[in-house]
């Protein structure tokens, strides 16, 4: 019971962080058709900017400043990079973001070095909020969840109550129609790209100190965020939300299951020993395979339902 409750909370906080990362990516992917490989790099930059600003002026201002700085970088990337290669097609756009991610990592190496930086949780939040039986639950995780939920609500209102939000929603599903109606689609693209980058940056600010701020952090979340977006479905923020929570839960809960195919064989009365053929494969436990499960889920989803969980259209 203790394990279950603690893990449930953990999966929720991880899932929400994933959503913060993937919401921006879903918007960009759905509208522009570009799988932005540099998205996770914006997450990393958010963490590094927050580290730098929190050293100078403290964590709270950094919470605002860092995402804005990342948003500015995102806008520049769209305006001077993606828009230039747009005419060469999606592959070129995708490769542009691929190359950008590569360069951002090298530049981070240069500026902040290759070792992790000491980006610490602010002292005010460094205590345990409550205990579940004997396990403490850190206040910072609660704070992370609050920020994520706050962002979720803000995003919801921005998309449903503002003019630009409605245009974005329309371009999610009918990009051509929106353009025909005379809206400046490139500018909408730039706004969305900057906004998406800002969300990733915000995720970096709160994730960077909860985990580690280091040059490999972009690569470590990069592909998992893709999985969330593809699993959730193109053009659907709700899908991305559900997918984030599902993937978060799959990754955290699988750790608790120490069952492998050997257990199944034993149940069926099949005898196995270390000499059996494919023994390596049978002895892999669910907890061992946990981190690979999202990819299996994604592949299965794409095979049986290429639109994704709640997607409106195929890629």
């Amino acid at each position: 019971m203790e394990f279950f409750l603690v893990t449930l909370l953990n999966s929720l906080s991880y899932g929400l962080l994933l959503f913060m990362l993937s919401s921006g990516l879903t918007l960009i992917f759905s509208m522009m058709g570009v799988l932005n490989f540099a998205h996770a790099s914006f997450y990393m930059l958010g963490a590094y900017f927050a580290f730098q600003t929190s050293q100078a002026i403290g964590f709270w201002p950094a919470l605002v400043v860092a995402p804005i700085a990342v948003a500015a970088l995102g806008a520049i990337t769209e305006r001077y990079g993606l828009r230039t290669v747009h005419k060469y097609g999606h592959v070129a756009e995708l490769l542009f973001t691929f190359g950008l991610a590569y360069i951002i990592e090298e530049i981070v190496h240069l500026i902040w070095g290759r070792a992790p930086v000491e980006y610490k949780i602010p002292a005010v939040l460094d205590f345990s909020a409550f205990s579940i039986f004997s396990t403490q639950y850190p206040a910072y995780r609660v704070f992370m969840m609050l920020v994520s939920v706050g962002m979720l609500i803000a995003l919801y209102f921005a998309l449903t109550r503002t003019r630009i939000g409605l245009i974005i929603q329309a371009s999610l599903t009918h990009p051509d129609m929106v353009e025909s109606l005379g809206h400046n689609v490139p500018r909408v693209f730039m706004t969305v790209f900057a906004g998406g980058a800002a969300l990733a940056g915000l995720a970096g600010v709160i994730g960077g100190n909860a985990f580690v701020t280091e040059p490999g952090m972009a690569a470590s979340v990069g592909t998992i965020v893709f999985v969330v977006v593809v699993f959730g479905g193109m053009g659907s923020l709700a899908g991305a939300f559900v997918a984030s929570l599902v993937i978060g839960a799959v990754q955290t809960f699988s750790v608790g299951f120490d069952y492998s195919l050997l257990n199944l064989f034993a149940l069926l009365g099949i005898e196995t020993s270390a000499d059996s053929a494919w023994y390596d494969l049978w002895k892999v436990t669910i907890s061992q395979a946990g981190p690979v499960l999202p990819y299996i889920l994604m592949v299965l989803m794409l095979i049986f339902r290429p639109k994704g969980l709640m997607g409106t259209r195929e890629g």
């Binding site: 394990f3 893990t7 953990n10 999966s11 991880y14 750790v255 907890s287």
Partner: peptide
């Protein structure tokens, strides 16, 4: 990314 589940275990 998150070792909390392992620690819970």
């Amino acid at each position: 990314k998150d070792f909390a589940p392992y620690v819970a275990k």
